[in-house]
Write a protein that binds this DNA or RNA. Structure first.
Length: 393
DNA sequence: CCTCCACTGGAAACCTAGGCTC
DNA sequence: GAGCCTAGGTTTCCAGTGGAGG
């Protein structure tokens, strides 16, 4: 089955004729020109501009679903602003709070990007905030803090940090701190203290989803940078736009699809990205999501999944727990309580790996009906990679 | 219409790993 | 080193519950 190495390389070499500039489709790529977002770019620039003559810009809230250009617009404006800055005291930390993970982690990253060192654990939240403020005050920094997925931070940890940030005011003079909050969730404001809301929402901007027509234009533009002429037929672009548009006009997803389709086509030595490759890419995106979710699971969750996979069809909490407990014992790892396993099952449900619906079976009690949502062979293969478990996978 | 199962899911306490100050 | 802090995961405890079978 081992294909001749040189033929693999030969094919890869041939495949290079597809791509001109692969970076143009990467998730981090911020194009110099964002089509259909000129209005938003101007509005954000307008709000942030005062920073260039040393006054504090208003706080700003950006709303819109994923892939509507919020992150790209804010990064573009912020980078242009920095390019104009001659004082070099303007700092523009960008933190995605969901990726940072916790409140503490978010603050830690803010401190880091202000070149202030903070230990990775051990300090209280208040201490870290104090250190950040003192850095701003003593060095007279002008900080425009971009908090992406701010709704995650608020829903998981409350608005305490924002409350303190929005009222730093005098305490950090002569420096200042302006916030740019980015949220996918339009309802997250309900969880905010009214005082925080009025301060944070001094300026607000809504990003509408891209229409299929707009997605098509964006894809065509990116494709012309990323691929050689004639590689991507219009029909493929149309399908790509339609697939992403049927969700909610998610440009990131559309661009991802195109990139992956290009990679698959290249690997298979095709000279064109046909509609079939787009469909393949669409499947692969879903498949990768599952694999990635599986791989990053803690060991206990993996063993629980494995226990569920022993039942064809559906099972319930009690049954799954007994099987899990037996497996864990065999592996010599700690056996969690049923309460915890019940909680983990709810988490797995949230990840879409398992369906765990609460059902009542009358006199025979109430439980979760649990069903595996992913192919068993994928599960055993990915979990089998974990040395700690491979014995039973 | 009532019972009573097999849990669910909230709340609080507990544990561990790391780091602070003095 | 003692005594304190926090985050994050887990355990302990327990009141609450939808609906099939009586």
């Amino acid at each position: 089955m081992a294909e001749d190495i040189s033929s693999i390389f030969q094919r890869a070499k041939g495949g290079r004729v597809l791509f001109l500039d692969r970076k143009a489709l990467s998730p981090e790529y911020v194009p110099n020109h964002l089509p259909f977002r000129q209005q938003q770019i101007s509005a954000v620039a307008e709000v942030l501009a005062p920073a260039l003559h040393g006054s504090k810009p208003s706080n700003l809230l950006l709303y819109g679903k994923t892939g509507t250009g919020k992150t790209a617009v804010s990064r573009l404006v912020v980078s242009k602003l920095k390019a104009e800055d001659t004082t070099s005291i303007i700092f523009t930390p960008y933190i995605n709070t969901r990726i940072a993970g916790t409140e503490y982690r978010t603050l830690w990253e803010i401190a880091n990007s202000l070149e202030t060192s903070v230990p990775e654990t051990g300090l209280s939240i208040g201490d870290v905030i104090e250190r950040i403020f003192s850095a701003i005050r003593t060095r007279g920094l002008d900080v425009i803090l971009v908090l992406d997925e701010i709704d995650y931070l608020i829903n998981s940890y409350g608005d305490d940090i924002l409350y303190r940030f929005t009222r730093a005011g005098e305490r950090i003079a002569p420096g200042f701190l302006s916030l740019v909050g980015i949220s996918n969730d339009l309802k997250f404001k309900e969880a905010l203290d009214p005082r925080v809301l009025s301060s944070l929402g001094e300026e607000e901007l809504v990003f509408p989803p891209y229409t299929v027509e707009e997605l098509r234009a964006i894809l065509a533009e990116r494709a012309s940078v990323a691929f050689k002429k004639g590689v991507v037929p219009a029909s493929a672009i149309n399908l790509c736009a339609a697939l992403a548009g049927s969700e909610h006009g998610d440009a990131r997803r559309a661009v991802d699809l195109l990139r992956i389709a290009g990679e698959v086509a290249e690997r298979e030595g095709s000279s064109k990205i046909t509609e079939a490759y787009i469909r393949k890419a669409s499947e692969k995106v879903e498949y990768d999501r599952i694999e990635e979710a599986l791989r990053s699971l803690p060991i206990q969750n993996k063993v629980i999944l494995l226990a569920i996979s022993r039942f064809s069809g559906s099972t319930n909490t009690g049954e799954a727990y007994l099987t899990y407990a037996a497996l864990a014992k065999k592996l010599g790892i700690e056996v969690l309580t049923q309460r915890r396993v019940s909680g983990i099952l709810a988490e797995l449900d949230l990840l879409g790996l398992v369906e765990a619906a609460v059902v009542s079976k009358g006199r025979r009690g109430r439980t979760k009906r649990i069903r595996l949502l992913i192919p068993i062979d994928t599960l055993t293969r990915v979990i089998g990679e974990d040395r700690n478990i491979s014995a039973i996978a």
